[in-house]
Simulated assay, not measured.
Amino acid sequence: MVTLAPGVLLIADPFLKDPNFARTVVLLCEHQDKGSFGFVLNKLFDQQLDELIPEVLVSKVPVYVGGPVQMDTIHFVHQQPDIISGGMQIGPGIFWGGHFDTVVAHINDGTVDLDKIKFFIGYSGWSSGQLGEEMEEKSWIISPATTTLVFDREEQQIWQRALKSMGSNFAMMANFPIDPSLN
């Protein structure tokens, strides 16, 4: 049984109505008694990294909406601890954060694999006990994070792929309509 901890995915229940989290997949980076936080993996932001960080000289580096909290901050997860120091491992092959100046330098000189890093504006946060309450309400389905899902660039498919990866009982949920009353 998967429990709430860093490195798990929170997959939104098909009928979750919260506009910030409907049909999202959140990578949980921290879970403690005082609160939890992570990043939405499948909501593309309308600006690229070089538009937000002038020091980035490479264009077409996507940025995702990590969540509704502190939309003036940039965060990242990656699979390259050998060249990005200072990160924290939160799952097999998944690292959160690191030295941002180093990341920018590696992007600019082409030594970072852009398929192995994902940037977020803002984050998703829960106060003490809030995520536990949402779990009791069945707002989220949890699954271990995989590098395949976390670094998937087809953001519109991540939610369905996450459900399908959990087996046939969950795979059928991937096809549920957004609003069943419209059927």
Score class of each variant (00 low, 15 high):
3 T>W: 11
7 G>S: 05
12 A>R: 05
14 P>G: 04
20 N>K: 00
22 A>I: 03
23 R>V: 00
31 H>K: 07
32 Q>G: 04
33 D>S: 14
33 D>W: 10
34 K>Y: 07
38 G>T: 13
41 L>A: 03
45 F>D: 14
49 L>S: 04
49 L>Y: 09
51 E>D: 06
51 E>K: 13
52 L>K: 14
53 I>W: 05
53 I>D: 06
53 I>E: 13
53 I>P: 01
54 P>A: 06
55 E>N: 05
56 V>S: 12
61 V>L: 01
65 V>H: 01
65 V>C: 00
70 Q>P: 04
71 M>V: 13
73 T>K: 12
74 I>M: 06
75 H>V: 11
78 H>L: 03
80 Q>W: 10
81 P>E: 12
81 P>Y: 09
81 P>A: 09
83 I>H: 02
84 I>M: 12
85 S>E: 15
93 G>P: 02
93 G>S: 09
93 G>A: 02
94 I>D: 01
96 W>I: 03
97 G>D: 06
100 F>A: 15
103 V>D: 11
103 V>R: 13
104 V>I: 15
105 A>P: 09
106 H>V: 13
107 I>E: 10
110 G>M: 02
112 V>L: 14
112 V>G: 00
113 D>C: 00
113 D>L: 00
114 L>E: 00
115 D>L: 10
115 D>Q: 14
116 K>S: 11
118 K>N: 03
118 K>Y: 01
120 F>C: 07
120 F>P: 01
121 I>N: 05
122 G>H: 03
124 S>P: 03
125 G>F: 13
128 S>Y: 11
132 G>C: 08
133 E>T: 15
